[in-house]
Protein backbone atom coordinates (compact mmCIF):
# COMPACT_ATOMS: atom_id res chain seq x y z
CA UNK A 1 0.00 0.00 0.00
CA UNK A 2 1.17 3.49 -0.88
CA UNK A 3 0.24 6.14 1.68
CA UNK A 4 0.02 9.80 0.75
CA UNK A 5 0.45 11.89 3.88
CA UNK A 6 -2.26 14.52 4.25
CA UNK A 7 -1.19 17.13 6.79
CA UNK A 8 -3.25 20.04 5.54
CA UNK A 9 -0.47 21.31 3.27
CA UNK A 10 -2.08 21.69 -0.08
CA UNK A 11 -4.14 19.83 -2.52
CA UNK A 12 -3.52 16.13 -3.09
CA UNK A 13 -5.84 15.62 -6.04
CA UNK A 14 -3.11 15.82 -8.69
CA UNK A 15 -0.85 13.42 -6.78
CA UNK A 16 -3.69 10.92 -6.55
CA UNK A 17 -4.50 11.22 -10.26
CA UNK A 18 -0.86 10.88 -11.31
CA UNK A 19 -0.46 7.62 -9.37
CA UNK A 20 -3.83 6.44 -10.67
CA UNK A 21 -2.51 6.95 -14.21
CA UNK A 22 0.27 4.50 -13.29
CA UNK A 23 -2.23 1.98 -11.94
CA UNK A 24 -1.45 2.68 -8.28
CA UNK A 25 -4.38 3.40 -5.97
CA UNK A 26 -2.92 5.42 -3.11
CA UNK A 27 -4.36 5.84 0.36
CA UNK A 28 -4.55 9.46 1.49
CA UNK A 29 -4.12 9.53 5.24
CA UNK A 30 -3.47 11.72 8.27
CA UNK A 31 -3.02 8.72 10.54
CA UNK A 32 0.43 7.94 12.00
CA UNK A 33 -0.59 4.27 12.24
CA UNK A 34 -1.39 4.06 8.52
CA UNK A 35 1.89 5.81 7.65
CA UNK A 36 3.73 3.38 9.92
CA UNK A 37 2.43 0.30 8.12
CA UNK A 38 2.56 1.63 4.53
CA UNK A 39 5.02 -0.06 2.15
CA UNK A 40 5.68 3.28 0.48
CA UNK A 41 5.11 6.81 1.69
CA UNK A 42 4.50 9.88 -0.43
CA UNK A 43 5.01 13.16 1.41
CA UNK A 44 3.70 16.07 -0.71
CA UNK A 45 3.04 19.61 0.35
CA UNK A 46 2.42 23.16 -0.78
CA UNK A 47 2.40 26.17 1.49
CA UNK A 48 4.45 27.44 4.40
CA UNK A 49 7.00 25.40 6.37
CA UNK A 50 5.97 26.72 9.77
CA UNK A 51 2.28 25.82 9.54
CA UNK A 52 3.23 22.50 7.93
CA UNK A 53 5.44 21.62 10.93
CA UNK A 54 2.69 22.70 13.34
CA UNK A 55 0.20 20.47 11.54
CA UNK A 56 2.58 17.49 11.54
CA UNK A 57 3.07 17.91 15.29
CA UNK A 58 -0.60 18.31 16.11
CA UNK A 59 -1.47 15.23 14.03
CA UNK A 60 1.28 13.25 15.77
CA UNK A 61 2.93 12.52 12.41
CA UNK A 62 6.50 13.72 13.05
CA UNK A 63 7.93 10.40 14.24
CA UNK A 64 6.02 8.30 11.70
CA UNK A 65 7.25 10.48 8.82
CA UNK A 66 10.87 10.51 10.10
CA UNK A 67 10.83 6.75 10.54
CA UNK A 68 9.39 6.18 7.06
CA UNK A 69 11.94 8.56 5.50
CA UNK A 70 14.80 6.68 7.14
CA UNK A 71 13.67 3.13 6.48
CA UNK A 72 11.14 2.76 3.66
CA UNK A 73 10.60 3.87 0.06
CA UNK A 74 9.74 7.51 0.53
CA UNK A 75 8.94 10.31 -1.91
CA UNK A 76 8.97 13.94 -0.79
CA UNK A 77 7.50 16.58 -3.09
CA UNK A 78 7.97 20.38 -3.00
CA UNK A 79 7.34 21.53 0.61
CA UNK A 80 7.53 17.83 1.48
CA UNK A 81 11.15 17.93 0.29
CA UNK A 82 11.97 21.24 1.98
CA UNK A 83 10.88 20.17 5.43
CA UNK A 84 13.10 17.08 5.24
CA UNK A 85 16.00 19.54 5.62
CA UNK A 86 17.12 20.85 9.00
CA UNK A 87 15.77 24.36 8.98
CA UNK A 88 13.71 26.75 6.87
CA UNK A 89 13.99 30.54 6.90
CA UNK A 90 10.30 30.89 6.10
CA UNK A 91 8.18 33.03 8.47
CA UNK A 92 11.13 34.04 10.64
CA UNK A 93 12.64 30.54 10.72
CA UNK A 94 11.52 27.11 11.84
CA UNK A 95 13.31 23.87 12.67
CA UNK A 96 12.17 21.13 10.32
CA UNK A 97 12.57 17.33 10.22
CA UNK A 98 16.36 17.17 9.81
CA UNK A 99 16.45 14.03 7.66
CA UNK A 100 18.67 15.80 5.09
CA UNK A 101 21.44 18.21 6.12
CA UNK A 102 21.08 21.84 5.09
CA UNK A 103 18.87 24.84 5.17
CA UNK A 104 16.04 26.26 3.06
CA UNK A 105 16.28 29.95 2.11
CA UNK A 106 14.25 32.49 0.20
CA UNK A 107 15.31 33.30 -3.36
CA UNK A 108 17.16 36.62 -3.39
CA UNK A 109 15.56 39.63 -5.07
CA UNK A 110 17.26 39.81 -8.43
CA UNK A 111 16.17 42.14 -11.23
CA UNK A 112 14.34 40.17 -13.93
CA UNK A 113 13.67 37.10 -11.76
CA UNK A 114 10.16 36.82 -10.42
CA UNK A 115 9.37 35.02 -7.19
CA UNK A 116 7.80 32.48 -6.90
CA UNK A 117 9.97 30.58 -9.33
CA UNK A 118 7.10 29.26 -11.45
CA UNK A 119 7.25 27.14 -14.57
CA UNK A 120 9.35 24.48 -16.25
CA UNK A 121 13.05 24.52 -15.44
CA UNK A 122 15.80 22.01 -16.04
CA UNK A 123 17.16 19.59 -13.48
CA UNK A 124 20.75 18.59 -14.05
CA UNK A 125 21.79 15.30 -12.54
CA UNK A 126 25.23 14.66 -11.15
CA UNK A 127 25.62 11.41 -13.12
CA UNK A 128 25.15 10.59 -16.77
CA UNK A 129 21.49 11.46 -16.63
CA UNK A 130 20.53 14.12 -19.12
CA UNK A 131 19.02 17.32 -17.89
CA UNK A 132 15.21 17.43 -18.20
CA UNK A 133 12.56 20.02 -17.46
CA UNK A 134 10.08 19.70 -14.63
CA UNK A 135 7.38 22.01 -13.28
CA UNK A 136 8.31 24.17 -10.27
CA UNK A 137 6.34 26.55 -8.02
CA UNK A 138 8.23 27.80 -4.96
CA UNK A 139 9.67 30.88 -3.27
CA UNK A 140 12.20 29.10 -1.02
CA UNK A 141 14.96 26.75 -2.10
CA UNK A 142 17.18 24.18 -0.42
CA UNK A 143 20.96 24.17 -0.08
CA UNK A 144 23.03 21.74 -2.09
CA UNK A 145 24.28 18.91 0.13
CA UNK A 146 26.01 15.53 -0.09
CA UNK A 147 22.68 13.83 -0.98
CA UNK A 148 21.80 16.23 -3.80
CA UNK A 149 21.20 14.35 -7.06
CA UNK A 150 19.56 17.11 -9.09
CA UNK A 151 20.47 20.78 -9.32
CA UNK A 152 18.46 23.67 -10.77
CA UNK A 153 19.43 27.31 -11.18
CA UNK A 154 17.22 30.37 -10.76
CA UNK A 155 17.84 33.99 -9.77
CA UNK A 156 21.56 33.28 -9.70
CA UNK A 157 21.17 30.50 -7.12
CA UNK A 158 21.95 26.84 -7.67
CA UNK A 159 19.71 24.79 -5.41
CA UNK A 160 18.76 21.18 -4.67
CA UNK A 161 15.92 20.13 -6.95
CA UNK A 162 16.32 16.42 -6.17
CA UNK A 163 17.86 14.50 -3.25
CA UNK A 164 18.33 10.80 -2.70
CA UNK A 165 19.31 9.10 0.52
CA UNK A 166 18.85 5.36 0.99
CA UNK A 167 15.36 4.57 -0.19
CA UNK A 168 14.30 8.19 -0.01
CA UNK A 169 13.89 10.40 -3.04
CA UNK A 170 12.60 13.95 -2.78
CA UNK A 171 12.15 16.69 -5.31
CA UNK A 172 11.46 20.40 -5.29
CA UNK A 173 9.52 20.20 -8.54
CA UNK A 174 6.08 18.63 -8.94
CA UNK A 175 6.42 15.25 -10.69
CA UNK A 176 2.63 14.93 -10.64
CA UNK A 177 2.40 18.03 -12.85
CA UNK A 178 5.49 17.50 -14.98
CA UNK A 179 3.90 15.51 -17.78
CA UNK A 180 5.74 12.47 -19.09
CA UNK A 181 9.01 13.33 -17.32
CA UNK A 182 7.22 13.57 -13.98
CA UNK A 183 5.26 10.36 -14.41
CA UNK A 184 8.57 8.69 -15.27
CA UNK A 185 9.96 9.65 -11.87
CA UNK A 186 6.82 8.40 -10.08
CA UNK A 187 7.00 5.14 -12.03
CA UNK A 188 10.64 4.71 -11.09
CA UNK A 189 9.71 5.28 -7.44
CA UNK A 190 7.00 2.62 -7.59
CA UNK A 191 9.21 0.11 -9.42
CA UNK A 192 12.30 0.56 -7.26
CA UNK A 193 10.26 0.19 -4.16
CA UNK A 194 8.49 -2.91 -5.52
CA UNK A 195 11.75 -4.66 -6.37
CA UNK A 196 13.43 -3.62 -3.13
Amino acid sequence: MTAVVDYGAGNLTSVKYAFAALGEAVEVTSSPAVVARAERVVFPGVGAAKSAMENLKSLGLVDAVREAAATRPFLGICLGMQILFERSDEDGGVDTLGVIPGRVRRFPDVEGFKVPHMGWNSVTGNGERESREYYFVHSYCADICEFTTGVTEYAGVKFTSEVRKGRLVACQFHPEKSGRAGLGLLKEFLECSRSA
Binding site: T13, Y17, A20, H174, K177, S178, G179, G182, L183
Partner: peptide, 8 residues
Protein backbone atom coordinates in the same frame (compact mmCIF):
# COMPACT_ATOMS: atom_id res chain seq x y z
CA UNK B 1 -9.21 17.04 -17.27
CA UNK B 2 -7.25 16.66 -14.01
CA UNK B 3 -7.50 12.88 -14.21
CA UNK B 4 -6.36 12.81 -17.83
CA UNK B 5 -3.48 15.31 -18.03
CA UNK B 6 -0.55 15.74 -15.68
CA UNK B 7 0.48 19.32 -16.36
CA UNK B 8 -0.76 22.44 -14.57
Amino acid sequence: VAAAVHIP
